[in-house]
Computed example of a mutant assay.
Amino acid sequence: MPNWDDLRVFLAVARAQSLSGAGRGLKMDPATVGRRIQRLEEDVNAVLFTKSPQGYNLTADGEQFLVRTEQAEQAITLATEESRDERGKLSGTVRIGATDGCANFLLPKVVTEICDRNPGLDVQIVVQPRVVNLNKREADMAIAVSPPETGRLTVQKITDYKLHLAASRRYLKLNPEIETLEDLKGHKIVGYIPDMIFDKELNYAAATGVDEPEFASNSVAVQLNFLRQNAGVGVLHDFIWPYAPNLRRILPDTFELTRSFFLVRHADDRRVERLTRFAGELVEGLRAEVARLEAHQT
């Protein structure tokens, strides 16, 4: 019968698809991880992984073993939750995957307030240029701009948010006036790198009518700093306005985009009280923070 420590190593390799990646998460050197996997395969009398140039991939036996091991993990997590102290405070570590804009301008305040109410809670925010893979347990939950269509996931809409065209006051003073969207073709544009847009909801080019930005980044924070440095005109989230006092909205009556944030969780986690309670506080906090920041007018 495999011990739980070996099962933890198995889960880490299955999710990271490499010995080194698993080792980083487990604080264990790759050689030790490899020996633990070999021992586990001997214990269960099955080959669980095949090695390829892309990393460690589960075999058919490995896929079946993963299902049973995740069920065991879930049971241990539930048992741990039930033994928490009676004060009702959240504790442990929660990892959130999030897009750049949400991670930089919304989550720090919301998460800090949740942790202030729950001193034993640690929160990690993973900023990635794509949707995190919850099935591989890259995070406990994720905030996405589009609801995923595949996977054993649960999706909850958090809130809508708005975006407008923006530029610095200095840039607008030194360049031709913008009276229509057609006028944008005579201006420098700040936006996403076209071939690095991982979600169609982030493709603002169709709405503005401008295809190629002169100043581009896959990071909202970098785009904001381009605008701050008088580089050109870009599309900016309304919840970022309090962080950008030198910027001004352009064509606010004729151009406005509405997008949404969604909370995505692994389907099995809905039975984990700690994560469900944290998710509830996170959703409530994000809704309030977006409303507060969008009320700021520039």
Rank of each mutant, 00 (worst) to 15 (best):
S52L: 07
S52C: 02
S52M: 07
P53G: 12
P53T: 07
Q54A: 09
G55H: 01
G55R: 00
G55M: 04
Y56K: 03
Y56S: 03
N57H: 13
N57P: 02
L58T: 04
L58F: 04
L58Q: 04
T59R: 03
A60Q: 12
A60P: 06
D61R: 09
G62D: 04
E63T: 13
E63P: 08
Q64F: 10
F65N: 02
F65I: 00
L66R: 06
R68E: 15
R68P: 07
Q71N: 14
Q71Y: 10
Q71K: 15
Q74M: 15
Q74F: 11
A75R: 15
I76G: 08
I76N: 11
I76K: 15
T77I: 12
L78E: 14
A79M: 14
T80C: 10
T80S: 14
T80Y: 10
E81N: 15
E81H: 12
D85C: 08
E86D: 14
G88C: 12
K89L: 15
L90P: 00
L90K: 00
L90M: 12
S91H: 11
S91N: 14
S91G: 13
V94C: 07
I96W: 00
A98T: 11
T99R: 05
T99E: 03
D100N: 14
D100G: 01
C102Q: 01
C102L: 04
A103G: 11
N104A: 08
N104M: 08
N104R: 07
F105E: 00
F105L: 04
L106E: 00
L106V: 06
L107P: 04
L107Y: 01
P108T: 05
P108F: 05
P108K: 03
K109H: 11
K109V: 05
V111L: 04
T112L: 04
T112I: 03
E113L: 03
I114H: 04
I114N: 02
C115N: 04
C115E: 09
C115Q: 13
R117K: 12
N118Y: 00
N118I: 01
P119F: 02
P119Y: 03
P119K: 05
G120W: 02
G120L: 04
L121V: 10
D122E: 10
